[in-house]
Design a protein around this nucleic acid. Sequence first.
DNA 1: GCAATGGATGGTAGCGCTACCATTCATTGC
DNA 2: GCAATGAATGGTAGCGCTACCATCCATTGC
Lengths: 343, 343
Amino acid sequence: MKPRSRRGGGRPTIADVAKRAGVGAITVSRALREPQRVSEDLRRQIAAVIDELGYVPDPNARALASVRTDVIGVLVPSLTNNVFAEVVRGIYDGLGDSHLQVQLGNTHYSGLEEERLLRVFLSQRPSALVVSGIDQTPTARKLLEGGGCPVVQIMEIGPDPVDMMIGFSHFEGGRTVTRHLVDRGYRKVGFIGARMDPRSQRRLAGYRAEMKRAGLFDPRLVTTTTMPSSIPLGRELLRDALAKVPALDAVFCNNDDLALGVLFECHCSAIEVPAKMGIAGFNDLDMMSVAFPSLTSVSTPRYEIGRRAVSMLRAAIAGSRPEQPVIDVGFALKPRESTARKI
Amino acid sequence: MKPRSRRGGGRPTIADVAKRAGVGAITVSRALREPQRVSEDLRRQIAAVIDELGYVPDPNARALASVRTDVIGVLVPSLTNNVFAEVVRGIYDGLGDSHLQVQLGNTHYSGLEEERLLRVFLSQRPSALVVSGIDQTPTARKLLEGGGCPVVQIMEIGPDPVDMMIGFSHFEGGRTVTRHLVDRGYRKVGFIGARMDPRSQRRLAGYRAEMKRAGLFDPRLVTTTTMPSSIPLGRELLRDALAKVPALDAVFCNNDDLALGVLFECHCSAIEVPAKMGIAGFNDLDMMSVAFPSLTSVSTPRYEIGRRAVSMLRAAIAGSRPEQPVIDVGFALKPRESTARKI
DNA sequence: GCAATGGATGGTAGCGCTACCATTCATTGC
DNA sequence: GCAATGAATGGTAGCGCTACCATCCATTGC
């Protein structure tokens, strides 16, 4: 007539461990969470019983009884996108031997979905949150500010952090690539962009600023779509761009997938790269350096962003505010054959 | 002197809602979970109060009080890998309007890590589990069998399912590609593989079987590494393969990234494709059809696997065992220019 | 020798929710 | 008219854990 058999599935509980070890439940709890507060004798003894019984603490009971869980919530706009896959990898590696768990959420580039997930995550009282970008909806921002846990916004930096930030300026990134193309003597430099999320928009803004500065801007040089980015789409968009501006002599692609598609389209249409067409991408995925010809891109420290975001959060959880809440990790232009036109 | 202020952060609870609505807590609980058991009047009234107070149920308390949570645990060996990214997308889409949550776990192709995550997941009493492949460790298998929830093994099919399975035969996939290459008149057909997880091994076994059948097998034609797959690695491995067997006239690449790397290496070394070198990949990522020349591959229904795995689980959660616990979704060879040698 | 100190340990009372078992009250059948 | 029925609702007692506040006891200082 054990009452436990009714629910709970009969797994051993902390009380079982305590009884068997001849100690109070709270001591077992402490042995698990703050070992230094329990004498070594007891600690060893408790460990043996835990092992013998196969006891696993129930995270739900733990969460209910405590103010915080060991979960850090991570919201990214996409998991299919290589860029965020790398960020997530950095995040996992950044956890190291901490007991933190990651809870991933995919917002699908939707502010509303981000709000929804934020509510779900916050209802679990996470230790910390990672969100992508700096364009949260006002509601989402309010949720973050009232969440009572450290927050890092990643990928971008801006003037008004919710809490902490780590990323780089996409505007400057776009500007740098564009300047590189102009410096190489390309004149009809197009912009090709897919998805056009806020970061893409800012890269486009950088492109526009630089083209205007050079006196080369023409709105017909810009070809964008809200469709998700892909290699096939790169081919299509180049065809579209050439249909509008046949004299096009270079393209800055919003990301590397598009750039590769553009390269294939050039191969297929026998457009010489870099002589007749300069190509530059963004992010510097590993394929860029091995493509033929190799493709110019902008290397962005995605993995590092993930890793450092977690270490900022771990520090914040431990109670130390960083003296520098906004970190610019920068980016690096990687000029390669695809823009190496003889001047 | 509210005791709640001590912990819990002062969020409204089900008791607050109940009091305000002038009903019992349990009725609020029912209104949320089994609306048809509460009269419409009360339901409406309760909904209004919930809205007014901004009440969000605490999933931890829910989990503690019930036998099961609404979480389905998903274990994949990699998130960076395009293939699993698509599966995960299918899984999310398969959820539809159910209230199920996904908890993702990344095993990094490690059986031990899979065991660890399985323990973490099971400690939360999930509604169902998705695991990748059919090569769980004996311990992992025991955990799955004793987990007391429906389980789907995805990506592969085999003779002895833990519960349900959906996937296809990688052995047959490897065999089919190899036969295609042999049929096109290639004779020194190499195999290039990275990572060499169990599924890659079975594709290799299919290759080997077919090459032996054709009387063409030579162990020196096989070039593998345990390093993770990537496009640059494809270039390297082709160089290695050519160093061993200069007469190599085709390669079956374990996956599409390698195939693309091989294509670039051919471009770079001016090896004509498909005349001097046939190239085939595996999975048919969207870049394959738009590469130049377009690349032969084997299309695998990754998205569909994710989607259908979830619908099998939803059915199982609802109590209906499928009459067909093992589903072979098959695959489809996509012959393209990279193997279109004139015979 | 004895109070003051501080580290180790334990008891109690929830955390917010739901399973289980009442209870209530209108409806039905005879 | 009255017991039997069943739908709607509520009360109580946990789920397994930890925060909070004792309590205990060895050590220290005078």
